[in-house]
């Protein structure tokens, strides 16, 4: 589903990603962990070209994002993204948030978009909030709407950028629950997270990133119980 080859990303003189190589298979759930500033979020944002790529290749669903002929808008319809700050559209109601992209990009009818939207809101447990505005919702509810909004495009792949980091602790669970459900249904997911419990329970594979490279990747059992690198061990000692 995703192939990344020698990905470098610099902001001016500051090289944030220093040669990332990895693969993500279809239906795989990959969690990316690591200290802040390690480049996790930048790496994730390169996967749908929210950050342009300095050098290297990112191939998503068979399309090389570096290729000038690749229609990035088309790729993005297949790649859902959930942000740390939710980024719901504050001037639109919950259901309008969910309906907008399918209507304008997929060009489906209002009727169909509404039915799809309502089904998705039901799935994330927010059917009764359809006509409210994002500001009237708690953080956890907003993030669940954001997940429904991304799913409304029926993506093949979902990217999560620290989806629970901006939430009050008691609201984290409801968002993780929705993500677990998605994983169970076979969604391909790349999740940048500080929720080690989630990574351990849900991930097929965990990547530990530090200083712009993937230091180590393995099954959660191995990463969390017997990591190969000293850096991984140190990091996990601090956060677990």
């Amino acid at each position: 589903m995703i192939t990344v080859q020698d990905l470098h990303k610099s902001f001016g003189d500051n090289e944030v990603l220093k040669g990332i190589n990895c693969e993500v298979e279809e239906k795989e759930v990959v969690c990316v962990i690591g200290p802040s500033g390690s480049g996790k979020s930048t790496f994730l944002r390169c996967l749908n070209l929210l950050e342009d790529i300095t050098s290297g290749n990112v191939i998503v669903d068979g399309y090389n994002l570096k290729d000038k002929t690749t229609d990035i808008n088309m790729i993005r319809t297949e790649v859902g993204m959930v942000f740390q700050q939710f980024n719901l559209f504050p001037h639109k109601t919950v259901i309008e948030n969910v309906m907008l992209a399918p209507r304008k990009v997929r060009k489906i009818s209002v009727q169909e978009a509404r039915e799809r939207g309502e089904a998705l809101l039901k799935k994330v447990g927010l059917a009764e909030k359809a006509d409210q505005y994002p500001a009237q919702l708690s953080g956890g509810q907003q993030q669940r709407v954001a997940i429904a909004r991304a799913l409304a495009m029926e993506p093949k792949l979902m990217l999560f950028d620290e989806p629970t980091s901006a939430l009050d602790p008691e609201l984290v669970g409801e968002v993780l629950e929705v993500m677990k459900q998605l994983a169970k249904e076979g969604m391909t997911m790349v999740v940048v997270t500080h929720e080690m419990g989630f990574a351990r329970e849900v991930a097929d594979r965990v990547m530990f990133m530090d200083e712009g490279i993937i230091m180590e990747e393995d099954t959660p059992e191995i990463i969390f119980t017997n990591p190969a690198s000293e850096r991984t061990k140190n990091f996990l000692n601090k956060v677990l």
Binding site: L50, Q85, L88, L100, A101, V105
Partner: peptide, 26 residues
């Protein structure tokens, strides 16, 4: 907030559509 543009673009809306439906009204 630039997150609004990113959210629009990440859904597959092009720049013009994101301006029109998301940035302009706000």
């Amino acid at each position: 907030n630039k997150g609004q543009m990113e959210a629009g673009r990440s859904l597959g809306l092009n720049k013009h559509q994101t301006m029109r439906y998301i940035i302009w009204p706000q």
